[in-house]
């Protein structure tokens, strides 16, 4: 995800401090990794360098001085441009599970202790365990919509993995033959 653009988006509502931006980011994207403050700070520096954000002023409120940032005209144009861009429908082809199946077949053919079919079953159990957790979160009575949608996103992707694992498991004998036939 583009942290630059997410920060520009959060600044579109008005000037803000780095810490507030971090807090609002984490609240808006409950399923995502929380932003590190250092990352917010360096991203803001770069946005300032590129003329997309400028310093709006400083506040002290009796505590340490905090810099307030605001979006520039160019920043707004950059943001709307990004919002209109189509995300390339690239699948995650650098799939670690797929790599483990293929390498597992090769290793097993070389006489090593590898069991790609068993690995797929174990991976399915791990996926299902995570999907149960996400489903429990999303169906709890007091869950907010952002959390539900974030859980849905993860569930849909894990489900896609599982479907792929199911078809792959069903065809693992043919794949083994293809891979191990010189």
């Amino acid at each position: 995800m583009s942290t630059r653009h997410v920060l520009l988006g959060l600044l579109a509502g008005g000037p803000s401090h780095g810490y507030d931006l971090k807090r609002r980011h984490d609240a808006r994207f409950p399923g995502a990794r929380p932003l590190a403050y250092a990352q917010v700070y360096t991203t803001l520096q770069r946005l300032v360098r590129d003329g997309l954000v400028e310093v709006d002023g400083t506040d002290a409120d009796g505590g340490p001085e905090r810099t307030r940032y605001r979006s520039t005209e160019r920043g707004i144009r950059e943001l709307t441009g990004w919002l209109g861009e189509i995300t390339p429908p690239a699948p995650h082809v650098s799939n670690e599970i797929f790599a483990k199946v293929v390498v597992g077949i090769l290793a097993a053919a070389a006489g090593e202790a590898a069991d790609p079919a068993g690995h797929l079953l174990a991976q399915r159990a791990a996926h299902m365990a995570r999907m149960r957790e996400l489903t429990a979160v999303k169906t709890a009575a007091d869950t907010d919509l952002a959390t539900v949608l974030s859980a849905d996103y993860a569930l849909t992707h894990l489900d896609a993995d599982l479907r792929w694992m199911t078809t792959t498991a069903a065809r693992i004998a043919a794949l083994t033959e293809e891979i191990t036939t010189p």
């Binding site: 068993g118 690995h119 079953l121 399915r124 159990a125 791990a126 299902m128």
Partner: peptide
């Protein structure tokens, strides 16, 4: 029934710990 994989519990635990 597909027998439960021996490694499943361990793998599920590892995956769960990441979150």
């Amino acid at each position: 029934l597909v027998p439960e994989p021996a490694a499943a519990t361990a793998t599920a635990r590892v995956a769960g710990d990441e979150h």
